[in-house]
């Protein structure tokens, strides 16, 4: 009985993180289609799927927040967990806005940059995967040091790939306006690993605060 409400909140957080994961998978699928088949008529529907997934994650986060306020945790821990979830929740937001950016601005990645851009996307998704596992570890008594260390390394790889890609985009013979649009897409993609790093920083702070 004593542990029941704590278990119920952990289950809800797990459900929320699973939903963010579904959003991540939809995003990966969507981006691949937007890169390699930008004219496909089904693309808007796929982007909508990412949007629905993001909204559902948002709803679940709000449920967790309400339960945290109503039932459990001392204010200090409540603040840490809420802060962590809110920072985490910015990531599906980035997935969604990137898909919309492709769709609304009719972005077409030139052939020669497609694989490299997809690699950048995968690097950023890797940083998300690592930080998601680390956040979950906080609620399931797991040592998360390995994951948090890797988030930094992957974020650094992403920065590197981002800079190279921007440099090569501007060295190409593309139209100036296209170059600027592509640069924005690259930077916005890199924001995912930046946000993953912010989540990791919050997570580490929460762990250090509780270190005995």
């Amino acid at each position: 009985m004593l542990w029941k409400k704590e278990k119920s909140i952990i289950d809800k957080i797990k459900t929320y993180l699973d939903q963010v994961d579904r959003c991540r998978n939809s995003f990966r699928e969507c981006i691949e289609k937007l890169i390699f088949d930008p004219e496909n008529k089904e693309n808007p529907a796929i982007v909508e799927e990412v949007h629905r997934s993001e909204s559902k994650a948002d709803d679940l986060r709000r449920t967790v927040e309400l339960q945290l306020y109503e039932r459990a945790l001392i204010p200090e821990s409540r603040g840490d967990v809420l802060g962590l979830l809110e920072t985490m929740d910015a990531i599906p937001g980035l997935f969604q806005s990137l898909c919309y950016q492709f769709l609304l601005e009719k972005i077409v990645i030139p052939d020669r940059f497609r694989e490299r851009y997809l690699h950048l996307v995968d690097l950023n998704l890797k940083s998300y995967d690592l930080v998601r596992e680390a956040v979950l570890g906080l609620f399931y008594n797991k040592d998360v040091k390995a994951q948090t260390d890797l988030v930094d390394a992957v974020e650094s790889d992403s920065d590197h790939a981002e800079r190279n890609l921007i440099r090569d985009i501007f060295s190409s013979k593309l139209d100036k306006a296209d170059k600027i649009l592509l640069k924005e897409i690259v930077i916005n993609t890199g924001d995912i690993s930046d946000q993953a790093e912010t989540v990791k920083d919050r997570l580490i702070l929460a762990i250090i605060k509780r270190k005995i």
């Binding site: 542990w3 704590e6 821990s77 967990v81 906080l138 609620f139 399931y140 008594n141 929460a206």
Partner: peptide
């Protein structure tokens, strides 16, 4: 007491919620 009880708590590896409850 601090290192002794701290060692015991570390051994039990509580998650953030259980830790809160135990400390409460």
């Amino acid at each position: 007491l601090y290192p002794l009880i701290g060692w015991f708590l570390r051994l039990l590896r509580f998650n953030i919620f259980t830790r809160d409850l135990v400390l409460k």
